[in-house]
Simulated assay, not measured.
Amino acid sequence: MTAYNVVRFRTKPGKEKAFVEAHERVSLKAKGFIKGALIKTGERTFCVIGEWKDMDSLAAARPQMIGLLDTMRDLLEDLGGELGLTDPVSGPVVAEVK
């Protein structure tokens, strides 16, 4: 069953452009990865959305995703509320909207 992951970020002031450019250079070559997108959700806030073949593929790729995040951690601001730099969620598709 298809799965998605969503990760919320907030950049440090003045780092938005560098954060977007870092994502434009990313190439995630993980088994089961279908596609992903970076969306701007507000002032200095972004979400990455990834589509995966299944939850097993997504789970297996977490070390690679963390490695990509490590290349841009210095651009991020703590989200507060004990979240740290990211607010990740993921899960299998339970209904499709057409």
Rank of each mutant, 00 (worst) to 15 (best):
T2F: 11
T2R: 15
Y4A: 03
Y4K: 04
N5L: 01
R8H: 11
R8Y: 09
R10Q: 12
T11Q: 07
T11L: 00
K12D: 00
P13E: 14
P13D: 14
G14F: 01
K15R: 11
E16T: 08
K17L: 02
E21C: 02
H23L: 00
R25W: 02
R25G: 08
V26Q: 15
V26K: 14
V26L: 14
S27L: 05
L28N: 06
L28Q: 04
A30K: 01
K31I: 10
K31W: 10
K31R: 13
G32S: 08
G36L: 00
A37L: 04
A37K: 11
A37S: 11
A37E: 12
K40S: 05
G42C: 01
G42N: 02
G42V: 00
G42R: 00
E43N: 12
R44P: 03
R44F: 04
T45M: 13
F46R: 10
C47T: 11
C47V: 12
E51N: 06
E51P: 03
W52Y: 04
D54H: 05
M55S: 14
M55C: 10
M55P: 09
D56I: 14
L58S: 06
A60L: 07
A61V: 02
P63V: 01
Q64E: 14
Q64T: 13
I66P: 03
L68P: 08
L68S: 15
L68G: 15
L69W: 08
L69G: 15
D70N: 15
M72G: 13
D74F: 12
D74K: 08
D74T: 12
L75C: 12
L75I: 05
L76R: 09
D78C: 02
D78W: 07
L79A: 04
E82I: 06
G84D: 06
L85V: 00
T86K: 06
T86L: 03
D87P: 03
D87S: 12
P88I: 02
P88K: 05
P88G: 06
V89N: 08
S90K: 06
S90I: 01
V93L: 12
V94L: 06
A95I: 10
A95G: 09
E96H: 10
E96F: 05
V97M: 13
